[in-house]
């Protein structure tokens, strides 16, 4: 049933990774991505792997969850590997058969690319696994707040994200209910051609649209009643403070980043 779906992929916990300030976590993730791309050979990447692995262990996110986030992009990983394997023709040939030519350099690049992508996915998923959606939205709003100066509606965007997060479970539940109701009226959504099935969705989509509009209208009214008037002059209950752990987190990343650079230099 769709209502069992989790929203975002937050996996609550109390690990040091969870406790980092969400703003810092976003910045560190960006630095981490840069780090992976700065590493230009296996040795440098080795440091990146070590960082990813250690952070993963510290975060205490179950391995199963991690596989779940890798699965959807498996196909991309395979394609990347194939492309590098077959189209990198420098280095010593290992296999040569008709038009297929695989070289040692090709194998090396393929492995390198695959490992880099895996690190990228694991590292960035750690961000979403260890921060609640609301913390992330908040963090993004605050990180982007300098953009308000150039008239980017940062507050409005963040508000929209919050409301979307708030209403996803409500709308999912409603979709469930409407689907059951139309099924009870004999709607057939399980058989027939794709075209027929798509058409069978109309009795679900229209009521869902109507109800979304109703939610929006009533919510807007309720927000107005609670003195909402945009981001101007707004304060926040939760103040984000950098703590000691955030300093440690930063140093931890800087240490590994330096490691990558050193590896690049000696390589």
């Amino acid at each position: 049933m769709i209502k069992d779906m989790t929203i975002g992929q937050y996996f609550p916990g109390k690990s040091p990774v969870h406790r980092l300030d969400a703003r810092l976590k976003i910045l560190l993730t960006i630095a981490f991505i840069v780090m992976l791309f700065v590493a230009d050979d296996i040795k440098g990447l080795g440091v990146g792997i070590a960082f990813t692995f250690i952070t993963f262990i510290i975060s205490r996110i179950p391995l199963k969850m991690m596989f779940k986030s890798i699965r959807p992009i498996l196909i991309i990983i395979i394609i990347t590997a194939m492309l590098n394997l077959f189209f990198v023709h420098t280095g010593t040939p290992l296999v040569e058969w008709k038009f297929i030519k695989i070289t040692d350099k090709g194998v090396e690049t393929a492995v390198f690319m695959v490992v880099r992508i895996l690190c990228l996915i694991v590292g960035t998923s750690l961000l979403t696994y260890t921060s609640s959606p609301i913390d992330l939205t908040d963090a993004i709003e605050r990180l982007l707040s300098p953009l308000k100066k150039i008239k980017v509606p940062v507050h409005e965007l963040a508000m929209m994200m919050t409301i979307a997060l708030r209403f996803i479970p409500t709308l999912l539940e409603e979709t469930d209910k409407i689907t059951s109701a139309q099924k009870a009226r004999g709607a057939d959504m399980e058989t027939g051609s794709i075209f027929k099935r798509a058409k069978a969705l109309i009795p679900i989509l229209i009521p869902l649209f109507v109800s979304s509009f109703r939610h929006a209208e009533e919510l807007a009214l309720a927000m107005e009643c609670r003195c909402y008037h945009g981001g101007e002059g707004r304060t926040r209950m939760k103040q984000l403070h950098f703590k000691l752990i955030d300093l440690w987190g930063t140093l931890y990343l800087v240490f590994f980043f330096a490691g990558v650079i050193v590896m690049n230099k000696i390589g």
Partner: peptide
């Protein structure tokens, strides 16, 4: 199963939200 749904009619709560 579908024939059974025709034998047993089910009106959900707030059924007006299913009109389309």
């Amino acid at each position: 199963l579908r024939p059974v749904r025709f034998k047993v009619g089910l009106v959900f709560q707030y059924p007006e939200y299913q009109l389309f």
